[in-house]
Design a protein around this nucleic acid. Sequence first.
DNA 1: CCTACCGATCGGTAGG
DNA 2: CCTACCGATCGGTAGG
Lengths: 193, 193
Amino acid sequence: MALTQTLDRKGQIQAAAQNLFRERGFAATSMRDLAKAVGIEPASLYSHITSKESILREICFHMADQFFEQLDQIDGQANPAEQLKQAIIGHISVIRKNYDASAVFLHEWRFLEEPNLGRFKSLRRDYEQRFRAILEAGQAAGQFRQMNMKIVLPTLFSSMNWAYEHVKPATLLPPEEVGETIWRLFVQGLEHK
Amino acid sequence: MALTQTLDRKGQIQAAAQNLFRERGFAATSMRDLAKAVGIEPASLYSHITSKESILREICFHMADQFFEQLDQIDGQANPAEQLKQAIIGHISVIRKNYDASAVFLHEWRFLEEPNLGRFKSLRRDYEQRFRAILEAGQAAGQFRQMNMKIVLPTLFSSMNWAYEHVKPATLLPPEEVGETIWRLFVQGLEHK
DNA sequence: CCTACCGATCGGTAGG
DNA sequence: CCTACCGATCGGTAGG
């Protein structure tokens, strides 16, 4: 919401929606709440957006785009552990740059309607597979232990995704510190060698 | 919902609410939805419950009770790594025994009203502190490395709490396997020694 | 546990 | 971007 005054009306609506959807959830946020936050009449929202769901759709798919862009920037020549480190820090950085939107992306996507819901799930699956490929490359290279991917992969994502909650933006730890710590924990474990 | 037919009406309402709140969220579930699931008229719900929020309250605090009970059963004489293992497996077991309710506990608690909301947050903080104490005991004993607890603790909880999602009940891995794998990952890490 | 109903609020449209 | 408004639905109560 900090940059609201520099955005056009459509951008203001998106920013206000991200904040409200994050704080109250999609279902508990009314178009009247949203209009009030923007400072216009409820009906005027529909000059800029087509439906409540269309706002959610833009938030979710814009976040998905950013997560994929980040993945495309990691060093394909690095070893798996290093690639994993870059992917983890990148993922957390995207969350941090989109404090409200990432919470919506993570929690409110289920209110998407078909066919958007199906497309969203498909993108998310693709993204998870990219991480899985890194982990499996590490196993193939003998760097990582053989562990059940059905457990390891969701554990990794859960570990990365808490970053949006628990802590307010002002007191946030730097994404690099969070990412490095999670990576070290994940790769080396808590126990002394 | 499997045992609905053996429950009294109040229990049926609770079971149906857990399922609906899990699938659609608290805000998006109407009392009419709930009544339909139970097979009575909407107004009849109020013979057994006082408000929509009171159902949520019972779910959340009943789950909290179970999490604490589980913690009280771990072996206080064991070393920190072993205590951690028992606590993790116990936590995941509670989630597994309450498939619908645990999702509600984890995601819908924010729709609690004061003073319940405050009480809930306080209980959750206490619970987290119990885990923190185990981790710090491990550090004090030289068994665990010094790491930023502000990162390690939420990472641990996130890792444990994914268990309620991603996977349908029928295909669930045994809680012991999930718990042991997460514990090993958390303590030893992914990398070969 | 039901019928009947309350005032409030919902997402969205018509028409300018 | 506004005024005016639509039909549908909301959580909950009265009274039996």
